[in-house]
Design a protein around this nucleic acid. Structure first.
Lengths: 234, 234
DNA sequence: CCGGATCCGAATCGATACTG
DNA sequence: CAGTATCGATTCGGATCCGG
């Protein structure tokens, strides 16, 4: 038996041996957005040591979770296998669960394109969604979220694109929202759209501010219950 | 920022910082079955070092996932907080996912009461279930699975209880199934109930063998697809 | 620039022994 | 029963380097 094996014959154990090592889940999270090259992953995970990244990529490949795909012109990308893609609902549920205890960002925390993309998918409520096109800026990450018929599609815009400036995807967004990490409070329902505007948590730099109500209905993660604060109780 | 922080402001990251450390998920898995004392956890995780167990218990407590509850007479148990219990669907989904790649047990792998209990919950198909009482033995783990109106309840029987010997829960089981780890192949649908019997993967030591068909319908984890074998493809 | 490999100190993990 | 203490073996993190 491998020295570092958990030594149990069990589905959960197998799963944890495949994707439980440090950084592995975050690599999978980013690959759930789309295929990524080594350098993309490194940029999206600024604090991962490069030797750990390459080790994890090998392990995930060995475990059948990801695949190495050479590109036609040059370079290569890593992508999830069908088996790896089956992690999507689990990752979304885990993101929803972890969202509850995010609190405020620590000094030095970053928001990356892929993590924000997954966060939007995590918070998406198909049933409460109204069709709309949002352009969302958080820090220097810019996304375009298209909601149509209860389906969400998220596209990543060029970084540092001036809000409302680009005409990259055809047509203008209904609303361009510029926010900071405090947008968490809106999605958590801790503050209402009008409070968010009043407290400068975010701004609607183009489009009617009423789109913010639709946005808050569409992207929402309800708190589990009040007992969440029952922490550190002996 | 903590040295070992992932440095990202994201729900998945928060979740992984709470339950992503080594052994943490397996502790949560066992606590999803019910409150457990320190010694129970140690027995259920034979390979965990005791210092790691106590460190994880402190961390999970600090994170609001578990709670320490002193018992009236003596001793104490750890139990999940409501927030921790919210991990149940995630754990079941993860168990289902990991089940696909379990293969055959490694030398030295064990099956514990709690892991088998969770495995049954993982494999349970409410829609295809017929009411029944099963007594299941795998290795020296003995469980009583009661299926009624699409609901599953699993009770753990005394270890080393002679199959069909005990009258612990009121009434006799419809079928007493004695199996080894090969029962995975039945649950995965790799073999049929009759093949399982013919190949001595398991035996029905009391009750009609036809109960095994109900069992196989009730507890089943379908393979994702054929491409699962597309491993290690460069 | 892409896709890593190598080296090394620091932190964590695993195994065992020991204690209130 | 419910953990600490200790210590060698691994792994991780940070930095540098390298071939294409």
């Amino acid at each position: 038996m491998a020295a570092r094996s958990y030594g149990q014959y069990c589905g959960v154990t197998s799963a944890v041996e495949l994707i439980g090592e440090r950084w592995a889940m975050l690599i999978v999270r980013d690959l759930l957005v789309g295929p990524r090259r080594y350098t993309d992953l490194k940029l999206g995970l600024p604090r991962i040591p490069t030797n750990i990244l390459s080790t994890r990529l090998k392990e995930l490949q060995e475990g059948g979770v990801i695949r190495r795909v050479p590109l036609l012109n040059c370079g290569l990308v890593y992508e999830l296998t069908p088996y790896g893609q089956a992690l999507e609902p689990i990752m979304l549920a885990l993101g929803r669960w972890g969202f509850q205890t995010m609190g405020e960002p620590e000094e030095g925390d970053v928001v990356t394109r892929d993590s924000l993309t997954m966060a939007l998918r995590t918070a998406f409520r198909a049933d409460d969604s109204a069709d709309a096109e949002y352009e969302l800026h958080v820090g220097d990450v810019a996304l375009r979220a298209s909601v149509q018929d209860g389906e969400l599609r998220v596209a990543q815009l060029a970084p540092n694109a001036p809000p409302a400036g680009g005409q990259l995807p055809p047509g203008e967004a209904d609303a361009v929202i510029v926010a900071g990490p405090g947008i968490r409070r809106l999605i958590a329902g801790e503050i209402s759209p009008s409070e968010a505007l009043a407290q400068d948590v975010l701004a609607v730099v183009r489009g009617e501010e009423t789109w913010l109500d639709s946005f808050a209905d569409t992207f929402h993660i309800a708190p589990l219950s009040a007992e969440l604060n029952a922490r550190s109780m002996t």
